[in-house]
């Protein structure tokens, strides 16, 4: 049974990642194993244009996640407070960005912000806005799932002790939601880091996130440089996710 599993699993899932990792250190790959070990791609991938792309990606992902988290949490809290019918409308509204192709989100953002009253085309803001729109849906979904799981007894106990709704939200409900909030933040961050399709439609020349750079590299045939960039992207994503999950375990064991 396990041999079947590994026959399917390893080539399909583990191999791609290992291959990318291997290729990032190589100059040639024309037989079973890559050849021409080098770290040159990394040197290229950690300075100049590539480094700038990395910081661009990080800044975009962080700001988009924060915006999405704030908007998603707020909307989820509002939905929980509203009646059933409104909540359904809100639910439907917030899942739309999941269903709509991200290319179309990119196109839509492009169309909307290329004309007055908001002329943001060619600025970094349009990229950040598109990312925020794309990931807000995920933030909303995970936060509202967490809110329904939260025992109302906590908020009620707090209210009976004389805490106003705002105080209850700030001192009781948000701290209790913190693990879910960080999980949602991690998800948003990872999605935004890897987002390519909407970004392709929107990015201005001075704001090139990593995925676009990877695409550009592979498109002109520089596969090995692309791999190195991809490894940098994966590493950055994983590091942030790891940090977020550290915060999360701390928060849940407090």
């Amino acid at each position: 049974m396990w041999t079947v599993f590994f026959l399917l699993f390893v080539p399909l899932f583990a191999l791609p990642l290992l291959v990318v990792l291997g290729a990032s250190f190589a100059t040639h790959w024309s037989s079973v194993l890559p050849s021409g070990f080098t770290t040159g791609h990394y040197e290229a991938a950690t300075r100049g244009e590539a480094l700038q792309a990395l910081t661009t990606s990080l800044v975009t992902a962080v700001s988009a996640s924060l915006v999405a988290l704030a908007a998603g949490t707020w909307a989820a809290l509002a939905a929980a407070a509203l009646g059933k019918r409104y909540r359904k409308v809100l639910d439907a509204l917030f899942v739309l960005p999941v269903a709509v192709p991200s290319v179309v989100v990119g196109l839509a953002t492009l169309v909307a912000f290329s004309q007055p009253p908001m002329l943001l085309n060619g600025t970094r803001w349009i990229v950040i806005i598109a990312h925020a729109v794309l990931v807000t849906a995920f933030a909303y979904q995970s936060v509202s799932a967490a809110i329904t799981r939260l025992d109302p007894a906590y908020a009620q106990a707090a209210a009976s002790l004389g805490a106003s709704p705002a105080y209850v939200l700030w001192r009781v409900r948000l701290p209790l939601l913190l693990p879910s909030l960080t999980a949602a933040a991690g998800l948003c961050f990872a999605l935004s880091m890897g987002e390519l399709s909407a970004t392709m439609m929107l990015y201005p020349p001075d704001w090139t996130p990593l995925p676009v750079l990877i695409y550009a590299a592979t498109d002109r045939g520089a596969l090995f440089t692309g791999s190195a960039l991809a490894v940098v992207l994966m590493a950055a994503t994983l590091l942030v996710l790891l940090a977020v999950s550290r915060i999360r375990t701390r928060a849940s064991y407090r």
Partner: peptide, 12 residues
């Protein structure tokens, strides 16, 4: 003052 069955002490 209110005390409920599941205590509802704030875990954090």
């Amino acid at each position: 003052g209110m005390v409920v069955q599941q205590y509802a002490l704030f875990p954090h």
